[in-house]
């Protein structure tokens, strides 16, 4: 009986420590599939997560930006357009908090894709970035082909965007901030119009930064 009690006590203490440890992990979103490979003559099943496919856009400085520049980096993506009268200003207001927190760290980027590339030329994007007070290489305002942007938004970042002449500004889009990890996987999605959720995003980036680049988080 005494031994049993001791055993229970040990387990309790161990689990208390275990659950108290700051081992917070962010979930992995998107489609996933189990892939079975033969390794050293044995069948090994691995989970393959949805990742952001390769892409190529132009930033506000006129530089070509592809997924290669973002390899091994954490970034936040959102979709907007500069003439947007509705939710964009409030999204950018909140994104500025993310920017100001991580602009000097060098390993966190922000990607704002325009969904109105026809109007939002590189020149317009540069002017917009300047006026927003954004400098340096942390926050990129990206312009590319409309189809490529919409496909990327809906298939990869899981954010709905579409043209709609009946709404102010001519586009409907969701104001999500999508958090991408060093392995190009979606680790969070936050309402960019909510200051509380954006504060959570800032916290979650910290958690993600602590994660080793090659870890196979489950």
């Amino acid at each position: 009986m005494k031994k049993l009690l001791t055993a229970i006590a040990i387990i309790l203490v161990w689990s208390a420590c275990k659950f108290n440890s700051n081992d917070k992990k962010l979930p992995i979103y998107g489609n996933r599939q189990a892939v079975t490979k033969v390794v050293n003559g044995q069948n090994v099943t691995d989970t393959v997560y949805q990742t952001i496919p390769s892409f190529k856009f132009i930033n506000q400085y006129g530089d070509s930006i592809s997924d290669k520049q973002l390899a091994g980096k954490i970034y936040v993506a959102d979709f907007f357009f500069t003439s947007c009268p509705s939710i964009c200003p409030i999204m950018q207001r909140n994104m500025l908090n993310v920017y100001n927190t991580y602009k000097n760290t060098g390993d966190v980027n922000i990607l704002s894709f325009t969904i109105d590339p026809k109007y939002d030329s590189v020149k317009v994007l540069k002017k917009y970035a300047d006026k927003l007070g954004v400098t340096g290489k942390t926050w990129w305002f990206l312009q590319g082909k409309k189809d490529a942007t919409y496909t990327l938004a809906e298939k990869s970042y899981l954010v709905a965007v579409s043209k709609d002449t009946t709404v102010p500004g001519g586009y409907v889009h969701q104001g999500y901030f999508v958090l991408i990890d060093k392995q190009k996987r979606i680790r969070g999605s936050y309402d960019g119009t909510s200051p509380e959720q954006v504060t959570q995003l800032i916290d979650d980036i910290k958690t993600l930064k602590a994660e080793p680049a090659s870890a196979n988080t489950q």
């Binding site: 200003p89 950018q92 207001r93 500025l96 006026k131």
Partner: peptide
């Protein structure tokens, strides 16, 4: 803005 503070230089 909520407090009429505007948004940067925009």
């Amino acid at each position: 803005g909520e407090n009429g503070e505007g948004l940067q230089a925009l």
